[in-house]
């Protein structure tokens, strides 16, 4: 294993991403970025068997279009983590912001803390590929908006009442799990809450265990709690809206 350490302090993202590219081309299998603060597009579009460690606040669009690498962030991230990501893993030891997992098609994102608005927006699945977003804290409005596939799991470890509004608005595929109750009035257009089946429980257990491994949390009390499952009412929610349909 070849490890490369880069002090990112004051380095423009463009330069930093070239340095990362050079390191990968030189055979690095693990890259450690120290003193990251707001650099964008880290590992954007990278298709390589590489591990990235980010220390600091990762900038917008971390792991966008990423196809394979594993990223661990020790700090918070800014907007758009995993934007249109295809494959790989992102583990964030902090909070996620808005549009985590935007249009993601595959891979996994684990956020230790809270996530912001429109998380999982338009995630989709394709054949065996399906994307997963797990957050340990809570989520804000428009969770799983337009979602077309994949899994969003909100563990709500703080046990605060869930307040994210318009959950799953426009959802037409995939599933959202929220630990605890999601009152009816928070559900978006086209979303409904249903009961969990054995397969749901199994999936939650697996993902909670994985979360527990990354962040050193005992998953048992988490996955043994009550969850709300939110799914589309229909896969063609607007079929009747347009006269020509």
């Amino acid at each position: 294993m070849k490890e490369v350490v880069i002090d990112s302090k004051g380095i423009h993202y463009k330069v930093l991403n070239f340095m990362i590219e050079d390191a990968i081309n030189a055979g690095a299998t693990k890259i450690v970025l120290e003193n990251v603060n707001g650099q964008r597009f880290l590992l954007d579009g990278v298709n390589a068997d590489v591990e990235l460690e980010v220390h600091g606040t990762a900038g917008d669009d971390l792991a966008a279009f990423m196809n394979g690498p594993r990223v661990t962030v020790y700090g918070n991230v800014q907007d758009g983590v995993g934007n249109t990501m295809n494959r790989g893993l992102v583990v964030i030891h902090g909070d996620g912001r808005d549009i985590v997992g935007h249009s993601m098609r595959g891979g996994k994102i684990f956020v230790k803390g809270d996530v912001g608005y429109r998380v999982g927006i338009h995630m989709k699945q394709y054949e065996d590929n399906y994307p997963v977003v797990v957050a340990g804290g809570t989520a804000m409005d428009f969770l799983g908006e337009y979602m077309a596939g994949g899994v969003v799991l909100i563990l709500n470890i703080g046990d605060a009442p869930f307040t994210g509004d318009w959950v799953g608005t426009g959802i037409h595929g995939g599933v959202i799990y929220v630990r605890g109750d999601v009152p009816e009035f928070l559900l978006g257009i086209g979303a409904k809450a249903t009961d969990l089946e054995a397969s749901d429980k199994k999936l939650i257990k697996e993902l909670a265990e994985e979360y527990g491994r990354y962040f050193g949390v005992d998953p048992k009390p988490i996955y043994e709690s009550r969850f709300t499952k939110i799914v589309p009412i229909s896969h063609r929610p607007y079929a009747k809206m347009y006269t020509d349909d």
Partner: peptide, 13 residues
């Protein structure tokens, strides 16, 4: 176009 996202009226409030 661009400077302000158009809003999807079917799903967003």
């Amino acid at each position: 176009q661009v400077t302000n996202p158009s809003i999807d009226p079917l799903r967003e409030p």
